[in-house]
């Protein structure tokens, strides 16, 4: 089972909930803005606590309210690619990529930089990158931490339209090189289809 998620959380008057079990390599969470997609990712990552439920990723239980069990985010080994990238502004691209690196990671910096096409950016500061470049670095940083899965929150939202297809194609190949399943949040059904993702609608 790549993802086994059953979470609910009351957010003011809104109730955010998701129940989904799947073996799929890429799962797209689709819905309009405000549907709670980002909150779901945050609950899976441990940055937001569900009121109730459980989260298992790649066979490992990360949260279970019945057992009062919650792994802290630092020990969940989930590569979170944020919508706003969140590259560390005081570190060069190389150090951003190496921030979460562990020796167990199947990737070397050079291999991954080659796959992502960011080898020439390693000595640059995040503030000097274009939207597409920054997104590739953010994906690289998440992959370097040897994650059990990737969580991607609208990764194409501020990417130049001409670069979108290129990055989508790259994302589609991540499970081949990294063996990690992807939980992909978007509001664009077309993106999900192009990724060949299993689709989960949120309303």
């Amino acid at each position: 089972m790549s993802f086994d998620i059953d979470v609910t959380r009351q957010h003011g008057k809104r109730r955010i909930a998701l129940y989904h079990r799947t073996q799929a390599r890429i799962v797209a969470l689709i819905g309009p803005s405000g549907a709670g997609k980002t909150s779901i990712l945050s609950m899976v990552a441990g940055l937001l606590r569900p009121d109730h439920g459980h989260v298992s990723v790649a066979g490992e239980t990360l949260f279970d309210s019945d057992r009062r069990f919650a792994l802290p985010p630092a020990r969940r080994r989930l590569g979170y690619v944020f919508q706003d990238r969140r590259l560390f502004p005081h570190m060069r691209v190389r150090n951003n990529l190496l921030y979460g690196y562990t020796p167990s990671s199947p990737h070397s910096l050079d291999d991954l930089a080659g796959f992502l096409g960011i080898g020439h950016l390693l000595d640059r500061w995040p503030g000097t990158l274009s939207g597409g470049e920054a997104q590739r670095v953010a994906i690289g940083r998440a992959l370097m931490s040897d994650p059990r899965a990737l969580l991607m929150d609208e990764p194409l939202s501020s990417v130049d339209p001409r670069r979108k297809a290129e990055i989508l194609d790259m994302i589609r190949h991540i499970p081949d090189i990294s063996q990690v399943p992807i939980l992909y949040v978007t509001h664009d059904l077309g993106e999900a289809h192009r990724l060949g993702a299993e689709i989960v609608m949120m309303t």
């Binding site: 630092a74 989930l78 979170y80 706003d84 560390f88």
Partner: peptide
Amino acid sequence: RLEDAARTLGAGRFRVFRT
């Protein structure tokens, strides 16, 4: 939010503070 990002990359409380 940068500190949250660091936590998802495996950094514990002290490392997040220090780095």
